[in-house]
């Protein structure tokens, strides 16, 4: 993976390389270099399979991380490309023309994280949610507990236990 990173670095200004396993590494790069890097990896290095495209919300740092995970089957290796986007007005170039199946991932990311992918087919259509009016629910600032309390009725007699407190009370009933 280090050798591949060096070869790619000679062409693209790449950021940090994280080697997770001998067959799995992650590279951070600027959004403007994503498409040429994807093409380079697909056509010259055997990374023909788009395994997944997903996002991570780093709300404390004010950014989303898009992860494009590519697989080189012949070389038995995976490479994750990390693109950091500002959370405000997050938007990214679509890659549905490279992998048609990417349109599904992008449609879901638009709905669940609010990240736009202009020109991606059906990107503005609801994918999983119907009639959703709240903030995109997979953002870290979406409060699932508050949403559940406001929208669902509690069944009478049902109690929820915090596991840590429950076990402490069971093991140390007299108090610590």
């Amino acid at each position: 993976m280090h050798e591949l990173h060096e070869r790619l670095k000679a062409i693209f200004p790449l950021g940090e390389l994280t080697v997770q396993r001998p067959d799995l590494a992650f590279i951070t790069l600027g959004r403007e270099h994503l498409r040429p890097l994807l093409l380079e990896l697909r056509h010259r290095h055997g990374f023909t399979h788009l395994v997944l495209l997903t996002a991570v919300d780093w709300i404390e740092e004010g950014c989303f991380q898009l992860t494009y995970l590519l697989n080189d089957r012949a070389g038995a290796r995976d490479l994750g490309l990390r693109v950091m986007l500002p959370r405000e007005g997050a938007s990214m170039e679509s890659i549905h023309d490279l992998w048609p199946t990417a349109a599904t991932y992008q449609r879901e990311l638009r709905e669940m994280f609010g990240i736009d992918f202009p020109a991606s087919p059906g990107v503005d259509e609801p994918f999983i949610l119907e009639g959703w009016r709240d903030i995109p629910p997979y953002r870290r600032d979406f409060d699932t507990l508050k949403f559940a309390e406001e929208n669902f009725n509690q069944r009478p007699g049902r109690a929820t236990l915090d596991p840590a407190r429950h076990m402490r009370d069971r093991l140390h009933p007299e108090g610590e």
Binding site: T18, Q20, R21, L24, F26, V51, L52, T54, V56, T67, L69, D78, G80, P163, A164, M167
Partner: peptide, 24 residues
């Protein structure tokens, strides 16, 4: 109950009956 896992990311895959199944 107090298990903290170091910062990092990984992807694990397996061959299920329908194809590649993975967790990121």
């Amino acid at each position: 109950l107090h298990w903290k896992i170091p910062r990092g990311e990984t992807y694990i895959r397996g061959e299920c009956s329908r194809g590649e199944y993975g967790y990121y």
